[in-house]
C-alpha cells in the first residue's frame, strides 16, 4: 500500500508503469481456468476457430488483462477499491499471443466530496508496437 504516493499525486501524474507478457501458456492457463481444467479449441486457443469467427488468428481474451488493472488499483487504492471501486474499459485492439503489455495509469481527477477523495485514473494497456489495446478509467472514492 502506497498511501504517500497516492496522497501526493495530482492530475496528470502517473503511477509507476508495469509490464505484463501474455504468452501462449498464459492464454492456455486462463482457458483451462474458465473451462474447469479442460483444454478446448476456441477463438482464444485455436487459429482456425478464430478465423471462422472473423478474426485474423487466435487472440487473448481482453477480460484477462483487466485483472492487471484492478490489481494495480488495489495496490494503490487499497480496500477502498474493493468496497467502492469502479472500472470502465474498452477493448480497442486484439491482444495476440506473445504481446507485451505496458500498463499505464494517469490520474485524471482528484476531487474532494464530503470528507472523501475520489481518485479517477485514465488507464491503458499498450502493446509492444505502441498501440493501445485496452483503454478506460478506474478509480475509487476513499473516505
Amino acid at each position: 500500500m502506497t498511501d504517500t504516493l497516492l496522497e501526493n499525486l495530482e492530475p496528470g501524474d502517473a503511477l509507476p508503469e508495469r509490464t505484463h507478457e501474455v504468452d501462449w501458456e498464459d492464454i492456455l492457463k486462463f482457458n483451462r481456468y474458465v473451462t474447469g481444467g479442460v483444454d478446448t479449441k476456441n477463438i482464444h486457443t485455436d487459429d482456425e476457430v478464430a478465423r471462422k469467427a472473423g478474426l485474423p488468428r487466435a487472440v487473448a481474451t481482453g477480460r484477462h488483462p483487466v485483472s492487471f488493472i484492478t490489481e494495480l488499483m488495489v495496490d494503490h487504492l487499497g480496500f477502498g477499491f474493493i468496497t467502492g471501486g469502479e472500472i470502465d474499459v474498452s477493448f480497442v485492439k486484439p491482444i495476440f499471443p506473445g504481446d507485451v503489455l505496458t500498463l499505464q495509469a494517469v490520474l485524471k481527477e482528484k476531487t474532494l466530496d464530503q470528507g472523501a477523495t475520489h481518485y479517477l485514473f485514465d488507464v491503458s494497456l499498450t502493446n509492444q508496437e505502441g498501440a493501445a489495446v485496452t483503454v478506460g478509467t478506474a478509480g475509487a472514492r476513499l473516505a
Partner: peptide, 28 residues
C-alpha cells in the same frame, strides 16, 4: 471474470461473441 459467459453458455449455444467494453462497480 468468466461468470457472465458461463451463464450465457448454460442457457444458450454461443459462438464468436467478442467483448468490446467492460465496466464494474464494486460495492462489498
Amino acid at each position: 471474470i468468466n461468470d457472465l459467459l458461463a451463464i450465457y453458455d448454460a442457457n444458450y449455444k454461443r459462438f464468436g461473441t467478442i467483448h468490446a467494453k467492460l465496466g464494474y462497480r464494486f460495492h462489498r
